[in-house]
Simulated scan of single mutants.
Amino acid sequence: MIVLIWITEGTWRSTVDAARAQLSSGGGAGEAEVRLLYVTDDQVADAAHAAFAGLLGRGHPERDPGDRMEELGRTAAAELLEAAAARLGHPAVRLHRHGRVEHEVVRAADGVDLLICARDGDRDRLGPHSLGHATRFVVDHAPCAVLLVWPVPAPGLDSLPPPPG
């Protein structure tokens, strides 16, 4: 069994805890190959590169703030993956990808048996708004089973909207 855990800044603890629960539940899951995935969205660094080149950077490429943003992103990703691996307490492959987040997660899920991700939208009520754009895309397009967890205790059934009409 191959388990992919999508790690994001705000929800990584809940996804790792859910994976730990799955791995400890038996059924051969203890022998699972676990992959921790973090995806860096390069749009911010690309925008900094472009702004610097277009407005400020003529003749001084060493001052490009996009380079520093990329370096900070690599460091932050490595630290987050390390923290997730330590919390997991199970051998895991660490994957750091770059690009459009939702597309990279779906690509990484190819050939995987289980993808674990967390709700990242509205945490106050049940429903479709509890998923952000990227997570909605991943849930809709993942080529494998998906375990979708709440990063906080789930809201009560009283948060359901009333029926239409």
Rank of each mutant, 00 (worst) to 15 (best):
V93W: 06
P164Q: 00
A45Q: 14
H103F: 08
A92S: 06
P61K: 01
V106E: 13
A47L: 07
W12Q: 07
F52Q: 03
E104R: 11
L126H: 11
T75Y: 14
W6N: 15
A47H: 04
P91G: 06
P143V: 01
L56K: 05
F52N: 01
F137N: 04
A48H: 02
R100Y: 04
E82S: 13
V44K: 04
R97T: 09
P162K: 03
G89T: 00
A77C: 02
R87M: 11
D42A: 10
H90N: 10
Q43Y: 00
P151W: 10
V149K: 05
A108S: 06
D158N: 13
A85F: 00
D110F: 01
A142W: 01
C117D: 09
A21C: 03
A92C: 07
V16S: 07
R87A: 14
Q43I: 01
A77P: 13
H96Y: 11
V138K: 05
E82P: 06
E79M: 04
A51H: 12
D120E: 11
M69R: 09
L147F: 00
A29V: 14
V106F: 05
A32V: 13
H96T: 08
T11C: 13
G10F: 02
R100A: 03
R74I: 01
W12G: 06
C117R: 15
R125F: 02
A29E: 10
P162F: 07
A47I: 02
A109K: 09
T135P: 04
A45M: 07
T75V: 13
P164M: 09
L56V: 15
R97C: 09
H90G: 14
